[in-house]
Design a binder for these strands. Sequence first.
DNA 1: TATTGTTATACTCTATAACTATA
DNA 2: TATAGTTATAGAGTATAACAATA
Lengths: 149, 149
Amino acid sequence: MTSNESATPIADPLDRLLAYQLRRVSALVIAELAASLSEIGLRVTEASVLVMIDANPDVTQSEIGRCLGIKRANMAPLASGLELRRLIERSPVDGRSQALRVTAKGKDLVARINQLTAANEARFFGDIPEDERRALIDRLKLIRSRAGD
Amino acid sequence: MTSNESATPIADPLDRLLAYQLRRVSALVIAELAASLSEIGLRVTEASVLVMIDANPDVTQSEIGRCLGIKRANMAPLASGLELRRLIERSPVDGRSQALRVTAKGKDLVARINQLTAANEARFFGDIPEDERRALIDRLKLIRSRAGD
DNA sequence: TATTGTTATACTCTATAACTATA
DNA sequence: TATAGTTATAGAGTATAACAATA
């Protein structure tokens, strides 16, 4: 910073776009969560899937994928990876469907995920008044529900 | 949907996490914007850069990157691509820095970008009362400003 | 020494297409 | 015919490392 370039106060016309702000905040918050989860050897998507299976024993891959917005083609290697690491187990239900369950080892990780996730929420959103926080969540869910999702 | 699988009302413990809701909404809104922008041959990041250069004539790559959170290494091919398509021009400033400007052809695209962006905002956020919309933007900016960004 | 710009490379998430097997 | 799961592949965004040239 040698020259006097008027301190570079760049104009940011994207500033007032909700789409842009959402993208930046999401990227920031998720990147931080990814860094936390990497300490326990998980990526964000893997952690999401693990938490969902834990909350819905014997759920199928397709159901998880539909709920989380993950395509079947991308769920396959995800579930295989979790099974290889003995975090989940599969048992045939249907001949074509398989019920997923979190193993004891997986449940230990779920507990850690919940801790790290809560810490992440507290770090970024802890100072938001509870009523505003709830309104924010509701508004975001409403936006999602209005679309094809 | 042949069997009676209790209509699959899956529990979603991620539902109450702001990090998760932000990620999903961001993905939804940006995907839609990406689809709109693809009609004029632009990706979201390219459009962001173009709008920023238009608002800040003679800005440098580094400055744009710092403002938008894009690393130098990723700005290089981005700027080169826009220049190849005659949407921006570079003129040496420094010997190592180059001033960026949007060409006439680029300005036409910027106008289209602004239209498509406004339509995207209206589609997803048009029904939000203005005071809440403003509070939402301010809250998101506040979250970003509190971090390393 | 710090900064600008570049190239190469890898990782994550997402997308489509094509295939098998089962309902 | 529709669904579950798989594989292969591609695109977009982001990350680091290393390098040359300049301030």
